[in-house]
Design a protein around this nucleic acid. Sequence first.
DNA 1: CGACCATTTGATATGGATCAAGCGATGTGG
DNA 2: CCACATCGCTTGATCCATATCAAATGGTCG
Lengths: 223, 223
Amino acid sequence: MPVQNALTRKDGRSQLASPPSVQLGRSFEPIGAPTAFARNEEVFGEGEPAEYLYKVISGGVRTYNSLDDGRRQIAAFYLPGDIFGLEARKFHSVTAEAITRSMLHAVKKTKLMSRPSGDLMMTHLLLDLTTQELHRTQAHILLLLRSAEERVVGFLLEIAKREACKREFDLRMSRQDIADYLGLTIETVSRTLTRLENAAVISMQTSRHIVLRYRPALHRLNS
Amino acid sequence: MPVQNALTRKDGRSQLASPPSVQLGRSFEPIGAPTAFARNEEVFGEGEPAEYLYKVISGGVRTYNSLDDGRRQIAAFYLPGDIFGLEARKFHSVTAEAITRSMLHAVKKTKLMSRPSGDLMMTHLLLDLTTQELHRTQAHILLLLRSAEERVVGFLLEIAKREACKREFDLRMSRQDIADYLGLTIETVSRTLTRLENAAVISMQTSRHIVLRYRPALHRLNS
DNA sequence: CGACCATTTGATATGGATCAAGCGATGTGG
DNA sequence: CCACATCGCTTGATCCATATCAAATGGTCG
């Protein structure tokens, strides 16, 4: 069931005061039907031509770079409502995969361009999206400098902010995904979550279900 | 003496096939005179309104976030020809300071907007700059995941690519600046450089003057 | 020359990686 | 319906890269 946040209401209009000119939904009025992707299915690969933008309807997507030493750096997670597929160059610099079964809405960029005043609209859309990506990326850098515990807490707060219920939610991604996003090992992520649970800061009914029990501590750790 | 690279020739036109629509110089034709900034002088501070774009004429600039624990994360170094001051929001999210005595050319954004077809041009300019920033930031993330040695080598190659002479150059920034950019301590940066010199991969006449002596080893380390 | 600041070098401590094993849920074939 | 394999996660023991603490060196400017 797709989560509907302020940027993804059916009518495609935001109710938030949009920082620059963020009305992303507007340019993404349904054209064609959403496509289904299976868990771990590739949406596009590094190096392929970047012709489409995608909007997550349900499920979730990870984008990543494969490192030469076999590791994987996850660049971002895209949750329902998020748009991805944006690239600076003509080709994708990351690979995108569904993290769970997902519905994605794809729009060909040239199609957007060809509509009346498409160029201006497209440029604005791209600027908004790029700006948002830049923000996300800068925040990611700041996260990577911190201790393992701070990274994990930062990650939980980041996800919580984007989920419908900010206090209790299911993680769509595996421990390995989280580790690859935070630049940690799976063991460290696991141990850190266990420690947070022991400290009664969070609780986990199952390994994928998180309850943020004591926010002040989380924000203190996230300082 | 400002370095002139392909993007900053006097006529403001690039000779490179520009990836998206990068013609940054064009919009930055001299309006008013450049301003001098002393070493460590602040150009703008975190939280201030972002009204101007700046172009580095000579010297260099660092942008950074102050971390709550007193550390400092340098987001980027801007060298002659680079444009900075771009912000997603209405306010600066970083502080900018001159790393050496620098000449900067400032252009008020509203001024660019008010010129004929200013809005379209401005949007394109912002998109180009934002895209470039996004690239830089993504590359920065990948750098931060590597070992100390790989980070330092990556940094040297990154700087070399942007300097006039790619084999031999002066570092405009201190060891502390480098450390804060790479998420390392000053001691680790220093030790790593010493080790590279002992391995005859680089040489340093002075601590600020770098000669890349053996590229293959550098690229191997950068893999 | 002397003070100051940036850099280097040395000794030790430690957070997180690595290696290894155990556990719990889920699914499959007999 | 149960034995068993598989997969994702957790837990434990040890190791190592980098931080930390401390001091020496060198370069610059008054």
